[in-house]
């Protein structure tokens, strides 16, 4: 009973804080270009921005909707508010939260998972903010290192390194589940190379296939039990 009370109170606070933080961040982010425009003496051209939105923004709008639908169940409410405020979801927040969930041994959809994912995303965001702040402060001395042609491939391949490590971790426990989405995606990218630029959208069919296969397996096991 006490636990239910604590959780209900925590959830109420999370939604309240999450909504307030999202709203304030939105206002700050949309307001910043105007504040900067005021400082520079040249306000944003809203018509050009609208044209630009039609040209480049619509794809990202679709991608944002997909991200919201897919990642919110993984992250829970608190993690989701925070992840969408701090960004870098695919290359950082999602893997970080999933990894933390595994280490903590909690299951998706539980309150423990909600807490673990919120904590992991908050820590990950703070580390990113600190690294970027330190990097910006030290940009001058770090410039040769960061722009070194020798090290360039390392930074260009952060995401492949991340997904390689995670692929081993997840595939070894779910090999049968992983085979079909991997084959389907590989076939698509081999046959239609232009899809390379749409990888983030293709997560949806790949994930849907994996979920379908998991559901069939789940039902089969339930019937046998």
């Amino acid at each position: 009973m006490e636990r239910d009370k604590i959780i209900a109170q925590y959830e109420r606070g999370t939604h309240l804080l999450g909504k307030a933080a999202s709203l304030i961040t939105l206002i700050l982010l949309i307001g910043a270009p105007f504040a900067i425009g005021g400082y520079l003496g040249a306000m944003p051209d809203v018509n050009a921005a609208a044209r630009g939105f039609a040209a480049v923004g619509l794809v990202w709008t679709v991608s944002s909707v997909v991200e919201f639908l897919v990642y919110t169940p993984m992250l829970g409410s608190g993690g989701s508010y925070l992840a969408f405020i701090t960004g870098n979801l695919i290359n950082m927040k999602i893997p970080c939260a999933v990894n933390a969930r595994d280490l903590a041994g909690v299951k998706a959809g539980t309150k423990e998972n909600e807490i673990v994912s919120t904590l992991s995303i908050a820590v990950s965001s703070l580390v990113t903010i600190l690294v970027l702040a330190a990097g910006v402060l030290l940009l001058q001395p770090l410039q040769p290192l960061l722009q070194s042609a020798t090290l360039r491939p390392a930074f260009d391949n952060v995401v492949p390194a991340l997904f390689g490590a995670l692929a081993y971790k997840y595939y070894r426990k779910n090999l049968k589940l992983a085979v079909w989405p991997l084959m389907m995606m590989s076939a698509l990218f081999l046959l239609i190379p232009s899809l390379q630029s749409q990888t983030s959208i293709l997560i949806l069919p790949s994930g849907a296939l994996a979920i379908l296969l998991a559901w069939l397996k789940f039902r089969k096991e339930k019937k046998q039990a």
């Binding site: 897919v70 589940l177 992983a178 389907m184 590989s186 899809l195 790949s206 994930g207 994996a210």
Partner: peptide, 17 residues
């Protein structure tokens, strides 16, 4: 299981690419 599957789908999309 659904969340694990979704994540496998995500990783598979990138590996395929």
């Amino acid at each position: 299981e659904a969340m694990t599957a979704m994540f496998i789908g995500l990783v598979s999309a990138y590996l395929g690419s």
